[in-house]
């Protein structure tokens, strides 16, 4: 179906995608077998296959798999959100966490939680917060000449710290008993229960739409005016990407709080492996991000067991150095 440059390249892409398609179920089984009680991976597969009630079955299906599938959805959503934001802002450093999109979603979600509104409205509020925050950053950082990278990052970081202050404020006025749970959620924590139907649906819809728009995204990255001159309706496409990235961030935040740098690390990694063509970058980032977060979530609950680390802490350990490295490299003059 894809007629992408050379034969060699599409064969390599085929290998990468097949590898990732294997990695996704392997990471899920590995994660389901690891924990305070180790279940042999063959027993996990057996349990999944037969569905016979047993202790293993309870652990796998009620404790571990829902969290792992959540991690899969969150990782995939954040990676795709990262890809979309990077294309939208024409900046490889764009990420839902760095630019405050996750923060906006978290603040809105927290407010709804504190008000004690029904759980469904938490997702809605998070979506509104994410889209609002991203729009704010775009609006504030654009100037007459288009986009300046420094200005974009500065605006995003300031907006993110603004949300951070609001979060501290909300925490300080909430009850003592709620604080521990909220803090953990904010740092990136998977609570019980898998992703809801709506979360998966949002991911699926945005994915399909982005895949169909991927040629337009390739052009958008080359410049808004350039894309327009080649027949892309850039305003419509960018608006769609803004909403898509906002919704995906909201999915991730409602499921697991603010997990940073996945949207930055994964697309960067996949660009090195499969290139910048969005027809390849999107599926590869999606699968890589999903399985990476499944494994991270597993590490978070096993490394210092019985203590659980917030997943966001681990992703930040990897993401922060990479972000700084990319920032430093980006400021170097390009080789002629």
């Amino acid at each position: 179906m894809f007629n992408l440059q050379t034969h060699h390249d599409s064969r390599r892409f085929g290998w990468v995608i097949s590898g990732l398609a294997v990695l996704v179920p392997v990471s899920l089984v590995l994660s389901a077998s690891t924990g305070s009680i180790t279940i042999d991976w063959s027993a996990v597969v057996e349990t999944i296959r037969t569905g016979r009630p047993s202790l293993d079955h309870t652990i796998v299906f009620e404790l571990r798999l829902p969290r792992s599938v959540s991690a899969l959805v969150v990782g995939a959503s954040l990676s795709l959100a990262g890809v979309l934001m990077q294309a939208l802002l024409r900046n490889p450093l764009a990420d839902p966490y760095v630019l405050g999109t996750s923060g906006g979603a978290a603040v809105f979600a927290l407010i709804v939680m504190l008000l004690g509104l029904p759980t469904q409205s938490v997702s809605l509020a998070a979506a509104a917060g994410a889209v609002l925050s991203l729009s704010l950053v775009i609006f504030l950082s654009r100037d007459a000449g288009g986009w300046s990278s420094t200005r974009l990052l500065l605006t995003g970081i300031v907006v993110a710290s603004g949300w951070g202050a609001l979060i501290s404020f909300l925490l300080s006025i909430s009850q003592q008993s709620q604080i521990q749970g909220m803090l953990f959620w904010l740092m990136g924590d998977f609570r019980e229960g898998g992703p809801g139907f709506v979360h998966c649906l949002v991911l699926l819809v945005v994915l399909v739409f982005s895949l169909f728009s991927s040629r337009g995204l390739n052009l958008l990255v080359a410049g808004t005016l350039k894309a327009e001159s080649l027949g892309v309706h850039t305003l419509r496409l960018r608006l769609a990407m803004l909403i898509g990235a906002g919704l995906l961030t909201a999915v991730a935040v409602t499921l697991a709080g603010a997990i940073g740098f996945v949207g930055l690390v994964v697309p960067h990694m996949m660009r090195l492996i499969v290139g910048s063509d969005h027809r390849r970058l999107i599926p590869a980032s999606l699968m890589m991000g999903g399985s990476l977060l499944v494994i991270t979530e597993m590490l978070a609950r096993t490394v210092l067991a019985p203590r659980q680390l917030p997943v966001g802490v681990i992703t930040a350990f990897v993401g922060v150095p990479l972000f700084l490295y990319l920032l430093r490299r980006g400021s170097r003059p390009q080789a002629q």
Binding site: Q5, Q86, R90, P92, L219, V221, A222, G275, S276
Partner: peptide, 24 residues
Amino acid sequence: LLFQNPEIQFPTTVNETVMNGRHP
């Protein structure tokens, strides 16, 4: 339309760039 100073933000190949011209 040929633009004055196109800037490159993301790695892209020569083939992909020329193929962009076929987009319409």
